[in-house]
C-alpha cells in the first residue's frame, strides 16, 4: 500500500498535480494541487506568481469543463459527513485572471472512497469520478450553472490482481472518447481496461479487456483519430496499445 501511495504521489507530481488554462495569448493560469490546498498560479511574460490559495481536503484530480468556465476537483478522502464516501468540488473560473470561486461540494455515493480520477463528457452535461479505494465509478449530471447534481449512476468494480497492491479493484484513470458516447477506464487493482456507456443516468459496461496479471493498468492516452489507446502499466512500467471500435476494445 505504501508503494502504491508513493507511486501515486509521484504520479500526481509528474502529471496531474496541475492543469493550465490559457486565458489570452500572453497569459495563462495554472492550477496546482497540494495536500490541503489548490493554488492558482498566474504565468505572465515568463513570470509566475501565486494569485490565490484555496483550502481543500486532499485535492487529487482536476478537470476543466469544456466551456472553460468551471473547474472540478476530487477530494481524496474516505469519509464525508460521517459516511464512507469521497467528495467532488466545483469552482467557477474567473474569465479575467483565472481565480476560482467555490460553487459546491457534492458527496459521492456510499463506499465511493478516495476518488482520484475525473472525466468530463465533451458535451459538458455530465462527469464521471472514479473512487480508487472503494472501487466505484459515479456518474453526476452537471447543471447549466456548473454545479454537479447528485450521483445518478453507480458502478461497482470487482476483482483483484496477484500483487499486494491489488487486493481489490482500484479504478485509476478515466477519459471520454471524442463522441462522448464511451468512457474508457483503467483499473489498477484488477488489471482491467473497460469501456462504459450511458443509459438514463446509469453507467453500463460495454466491454472490457484483461491486462497482463500484476501489470496494474494506470495512466493512458487515447488518440481519437486512430481510435488507439496507449496504457501505462504502473506495476511493470510497460506500455500496451489497444484499439477501440464501437465501444469494443481489442489488443493491437
Amino acid at each position: 500500500m505504501l508503494i502504491a501511495n508513493c507511486k501515486r504521489r509521484t504520479f500526481l507530481q509528474s502529471l496531474s498535480a496541475f492543469a493550465a488554462l490559457r486565458l489570452s495569448a500572453s497569459s495563462c493560469s495554472r492550477y496546482v494541487l497540494s495536500a490541503e490546498s489548490i493554488d492558482v498560479v498566474a504565468i505572465q511574460g515568463g513570470q509566475r506568481f501565486r494569485l490565490q490559495r484555496i483550502a481543500s481536503r486532499g485535492p487529487s484530480a482536476l478537470a476543466f469543463h469544456p466551456s472553460g468556465r468551471f473547474l472540478y476537483v476530487t477530494n481524496d478522502v474516505a469519509e464525508h459527513e460521517n459516511l464512507p464516501r469521497g467528495t467532488l468540488e466545483a469552482y467557477a473560473i474567473d474569465g479575467y485572471d483565472g481565480r476560482l470561486k467555490f460553487l459546491a461540494r457534492q458527496p459521492l455515493s456510499l463506499s465511493a472512497t478516495n476518488p482520484r480520477a475525473i472525466a468530463i463528457a465533451p458535451s459538458g452535461s455530465h462527469l464521471v469520478v472514479a473512487a480508487y479505494s472503494g472501487g466505484i465509478y459515479n456518474l453526476l449530471p452537471i447543471g447549466p450553472d456548473g454545479v454537479p447534481r447528485s450521483v445518478t449512476g453507480i458502478f461497482k468494480e470487482l476483482g483483484r490482481g496477484p500483487c499486494s497492491e491489488q487486493l481489490s479493484a482500484h479504478p485509476h484513470s478515466l477519459a471520454f472518447d471524442s463522441s462522448g458516447r464511451y468512457l474508457i477506464s483503467t483499473d489498477f487493482g484488477c488489471d482491467r481496461i473497460s469501456v462504459f456507456t450511458f443509459h438514463g443516468g446509469a453507467l453500463e459496461r460495454t466491454s472490457h479487456i484483461v491486462a497482463p496479471p500484476g501489470s496494474g493498468p494506470g495512466r493512458f492516452t487515447f488518440d481519437a483519430a486512430a481510435a488507439r489507446l496507449s496504457v501505462v502499466h504502473e506495476l511493470t512500467g510497460r506500455v500496451s496499445q489497444y484499439r477501440m471500435k464501437a465501444g469494443i476494445l481489442t489488443g493491437v
Partner: peptide, 9 residues
C-alpha cells in the same frame, strides 16, 4: 468481502 460489496452507512 474484499471488494466491500456489502456495505451501508
Amino acid at each position: 468481502d474484499p471488494n466491500n460489496v456489502f456495505h451501508h452507512a
